[in-house]
Simulated scan of single mutants.
Amino acid sequence: MNMLRINPFRDLESWFNTYNRPLANFDKSSNEWAPSVDIIENDESFVIKAELAGIPKDDIKVSIDNRVLTLSGERKSEVKDEKHHRIERFYGSFSRSFALPENIDEENIKAENKDGVLSLTIPKALPKQSLKQIEIH
């Protein structure tokens, strides 16, 4: 005989997860939105990937100040005078900031915008050589 576990709140949880996810990336008070970002670390670098579909690279700005990387820009509205039945994509300006660790090489950061994903590769700095002992003769 098999037992079937019934969770009466499963559908409710699914509904909240589906409809709250877009709201988590939107601040209604400022009309700004925040693109979803993945941050990955490997032995050589940190990689930040941001979903920026539909935003030309000229409308994206990446800057570093005091080890804080800021990604900002704007997705311009495509809404004209047509009748829209649904608008789910966010439009307007955005800004995301990330504190960077001390062990990065700011001079060699690379940025690539491909298929709507901006990838920032932030290389780790080479470790400083340890103190060299000098023999006294």
Rank of each mutant, 00 (worst) to 15 (best):
M1P: 07
N2V: 11
R5W: 07
I6V: 15
N7V: 07
P8W: 02
R10P: 03
L12K: 12
S14C: 04
S14Q: 15
W15A: 11
F16N: 08
T18Q: 15
T18G: 02
T18Y: 11
Y19F: 14
R21V: 07
R21N: 14
P22N: 05
N25Q: 11
N25T: 01
F26I: 00
E32C: 06
E32M: 10
E32P: 00
W33N: 03
A34E: 09
S36H: 00
D38V: 12
D38L: 13
I40W: 05
I40F: 09
I40T: 14
I40C: 00
E41N: 08
N42G: 10
D43S: 14
D43V: 11
D43Q: 14
E44Y: 05
S45H: 09
V47D: 11
I48Q: 03
A50F: 00
A50G: 04
L52K: 01
I55Y: 05
I55W: 03
I55N: 03
K57H: 07
K57S: 15
K57F: 07
I60K: 03
I60N: 02
S63K: 13
S63M: 08
S63L: 04
N66K: 15
R67T: 05
V68L: 05
V68K: 13
L69G: 01
L69P: 02
T70I: 04
L71T: 04
G73S: 04
G73Q: 02
S77A: 09
K80P: 00
K80G: 12
E82T: 04
K83C: 01
H84E: 13
H85C: 06
H85K: 02
I87R: 04
E88Q: 09
E88M: 06
S93G: 07
S93I: 01
F94E: 10
F98W: 09
A99F: 02
A99N: 12
P101W: 08
P101R: 10
E102F: 13
N103W: 04
N103P: 10
I104T: 08
D105E: 15
D105Q: 14
E107W: 06
E107A: 15
N108L: 09
E112T: 13
E112F: 05
K114M: 05
G116M: 01
V117R: 03
V117M: 06
L118H: 07
S119A: 15
L120M: 06
L120T: 08
T121A: 06
T121D: 09
P123S: 07
K124Y: 09
A125K: 15
A125P: 07
K128C: 01
Q129C: 01
S130R: 08
S130N: 12
L131S: 09
K132S: 00
K132W: 00
Q133W: 01
I134D: 01
